[in-house]
Amino acid sequence: DTLHVTQDGKHIELRGLSEEEIKLVEELLRRGRKVEEALKIIEELRK
């Protein structure tokens, strides 16, 4: 699936995420994380 995010005035499209990963990214962003940080966390969880 694809998640569309706008952060720091930039539109970012995150592709290839599972539904659970999207929920996790959304939660991390709500808690003030940056998109880059959220993606690093997803990458770690995929290992």
Rank of each mutant, 00 (worst) to 15 (best):
D1P: 15
D1G: 15
D1K: 06
D1W: 01
T2Q: 08
T2S: 12
T2I: 13
T2L: 04
T2W: 08
T2C: 09
L3P: 07
L3W: 03
L3H: 10
L3F: 03
L3E: 06
H4Y: 02
H4G: 07
H4F: 03
H4Q: 09
V5K: 03
T6Y: 10
T6V: 14
T6W: 15
T6N: 10
T6H: 13
T6A: 07
Q7G: 07
Q7W: 01
Q7R: 01
Q7M: 04
D8E: 06
D8F: 01
G9A: 02
G9K: 02
G9E: 07
G9D: 08
G9T: 02
K10W: 09
K10V: 15
H11L: 13
H11A: 07
H11N: 10
H11C: 04
H11Q: 08
H11W: 12
I12R: 03
I12S: 03
I12Q: 05
I12E: 08
I12D: 05
I12N: 06
I12C: 06
I12G: 03
E13P: 03
E13Y: 11
E13W: 12
E13K: 04
L14Q: 03
L14T: 05
L14D: 04
L14N: 04
L14I: 15
L14G: 04
R15Y: 15
R15T: 13
R15M: 11
R15F: 15
R15W: 15
G16F: 07
G16Q: 06
G16E: 09
G16N: 09
G16D: 12
G16T: 04
L17N: 00
L17Y: 10
L17G: 01
S18Q: 06
S18M: 06
S18G: 04
S18R: 07
E19V: 14
E19K: 14
E19C: 10
E19Q: 15
E19H: 14
E19S: 14
E19F: 13
E19R: 13
E20K: 12
E20V: 12
E20M: 13
E20T: 13
E20N: 13
E20D: 13
E21W: 03
E21P: 00
E21K: 00
E21A: 02
E21N: 01
I22W: 09
I22A: 12
I22L: 08
I22V: 10
I22S: 08
I22K: 14
I22E: 06
K23M: 12
K23F: 10
K23E: 11
L24F: 09
V25S: 01
V25D: 00
V25F: 09
V25C: 06
V25E: 00
E26H: 15
E26G: 13
E26N: 14
E26A: 14
E26Q: 15
E26K: 15
E26S: 15
E27W: 15
E27P: 01
E27I: 14
E27L: 15
E27G: 11
L28S: 03
L28N: 02
L28Q: 03
L28C: 01
L28W: 13
L29E: 00
L29K: 01
L29G: 00
L29S: 01
L29D: 00
R30M: 12
R30Q: 08
R30E: 07
R30F: 12
R30C: 05
R30P: 00
R30W: 11
R30H: 06
R31C: 05
R31V: 09
G32T: 01
G32N: 05
G32P: 01
G32W: 03
R33G: 10
R33K: 11
K34E: 08
K34N: 11
K34W: 09
K34P: 11
V35T: 04
V35E: 03
V35I: 11
V35N: 01
V35H: 02
V35S: 02
E36G: 08
E36T: 10
E36S: 12
E36L: 13
E36I: 11
E36Y: 15
E36A: 12
E36R: 09
E36C: 12
E37H: 09
E37W: 11
E37K: 04
E37V: 07
E37R: 04
A38W: 02
A38D: 00
A38H: 00
A38T: 07
L39T: 04
L39K: 05
L39F: 07
L39N: 02
K40L: 12
K40S: 11
I41L: 11
I41E: 09
I41F: 12
I41P: 00
I41Y: 12
I41N: 04
I42Q: 00
I42H: 00
I42S: 00
E43D: 13
E43R: 08
E43T: 07
E43P: 00
E43H: 10
E43M: 12
E43L: 12
E44V: 10
E44A: 11
E44F: 14
E44M: 11
E44S: 09
E44L: 13
E44P: 00
L45R: 07
L45H: 07
L45S: 05
R46A: 04
R46I: 03
R46M: 04
R46G: 02
R46C: 03
K47Q: 13
K47T: 12
K47W: 14
